[in-house]
C-alpha cells in the first residue's frame, strides 16, 4: 500500500511539472490565437507586403533546405566516415551556428562573404558578385543556421548504420558511389527526411542572421520573420497575424510529417 501511494505521489509531481512544461509552449500559442485580429484577418493576410513576404519565405526556406541536403548529407558522411584529422573539432564547428546568437552569425557572414569579406572581396573584385542585400544572401543565412539540424541527424544515423551492409554491397561489385547511392542513402533516408523537415522549419523562422546579413527589402530580402519584427514597431495587430500565419504553417507541416518521417526516424534513432 505504501509503495503504491508513493508511486501515485511521484507520478502526480511529474504530472504537474510536465503540464507546466507544456504550458511554456501552449500558452504563447493560445495567446496569439486569442489576440489575433480575426475580423480584419482576411484583409490583412492577403495584403501585398504579407503576400510577398510569405512567398519569399517559402521559396527561400525550400531552397535553403535543398542546399542543406545537397551539402549537408556529404558533410555528415565526412564527419561520420572519413578519417580526416580534426574531425571532432570540425563536427563542433559545423554545429556552432545552432547556439550562436543570430546577430553574431550575421556579422560572421559579413566578414566571410560580405563586400569586404574574406571571400566576398575577391568575389566582388573579380566577378562583380556581391551577396549582401540579395535573395541568395537570405538563403545563405538560412543554410548557415539551419543546416546543422540536417547534419546532426544524418551524422547520428550514419554512426548507427551497420556498415556490413555497405561491405556486402562492395563484394557485389558496387563502386563507392554506387554503394552510397543504393545502400547507404536508402538506409539513412528517414534521417535525411527528418533533418530536412527540421532544417526547413528552422530556415522558415530564421531572423537574426538574415536581418543582419541580408538586410530587409520588401520582395527581395524581407521574409516573414522580418516583416513581423517590423510590424511590431507600429502595428501590433499585423505583427500578431503574421506570427500566427508563420506558426500555423510550421505547425501544419511538422504535425503532418511527424507521424511519418520525423516520428519514425526519431523513434528509430532513439532505439
Amino acid at each position: 500500500m505504501t509503495d503504491r501511494r508513493h508511486t501515485a505521489e511521484t507520478s502526480r509531481v511529474l504530472m504537474v511539472l510536465g503540464v507546466c512544461g507544456a504550458l511554456v509552449f501552449v500558452l504563447p500559442l493560445v495567446a496569439l490565437v486569442v489576440r489575433a485580429p480575426w475580423r480584419s484577418a482576411g484583409e490583412l493576410a492577403t495584403s501585398g507586403p504579407i503576400r510577398s513576404a510569405l512567398w519569399l519565405s517559402i521559396v527561400t526556406s525550400l531552397v535553403a533546405t535543398v542546399v542543406s541536403i545537397v551539402l549537408g548529407v556529404p558533410l555528415a558522411w565526412v564527419l561520420a566516415r572519413s578519417r580526416l584529422p580534426g574531425r571532432r573539432l570540425l563536427r563542433t564547428i559545423c554545429t556552432l551556428s545552432m547556439v550562436l546568437p543570430p546577430v553574431v552569425a550575421g556579422v560572421a557572414l559579413f566578414l566571410a562573404v560580405g563586400r569586404r569579406g574574406l571571400i566576398g572581396e575577391p568575389l566582388d573584385r573579380w566577378f562583380g558578385i556581391t551577396l549582401p542585400f540579395t535573395t541568395p544572401a537570405v538563403v545563405l543565412a538560412q543554410v548557415f543556421v539551419a543546416m546543422p539540424f540536417l547534419v546532426l541527424t544524418v551524422d547520428a544515423a550514419l554512426e548507427q548504420l551497420d556498415r556490413r551492409f555497405e561491405d556486402a554491397a562492395r563484394t557485389l561489385g558496387g563502386s563507392e558511389w554506387f554503394v552510397f547511392r543504393h545502400v547507404t542513402l536508402p538506409a539513412i533516408r528517414p534521417a535525411v527526411l527528418t533533418g530536412a523537415v527540421l532544417t526547413w522549419a528552422r530556415a522558415l523562422g530564421e531572423f537574426g542572421a538574415t536581418i543582419t546579413f541580408a538586410g530587409s527589402l520588401p520582395g527581395v530580402t524581407r521574409t516573414m520573420p522580418l516583416e513581423t519584427y517590423l510590424a511590431l514597431e507600429t502595428d501590433l495587430d499585423r505583427a500578431v497575424l503574421l506570427s500566427l500565419l508563420l506558426v500555423a504553417i510550421s505547425l501544419t507541416v511538422l504535425y503532418a510529417l511527424r507521424g511519418r518521417w520525423v516520428g519514425a526516424a526519431l523513434r528509430g534513432g532513439g532505439a
Partner: peptide
Amino acid sequence: FQSYLLFDH
C-alpha cells in the same frame, strides 16, 4: 554473410 545482410529496401 552470417546474417545474410539483405538490403531491406
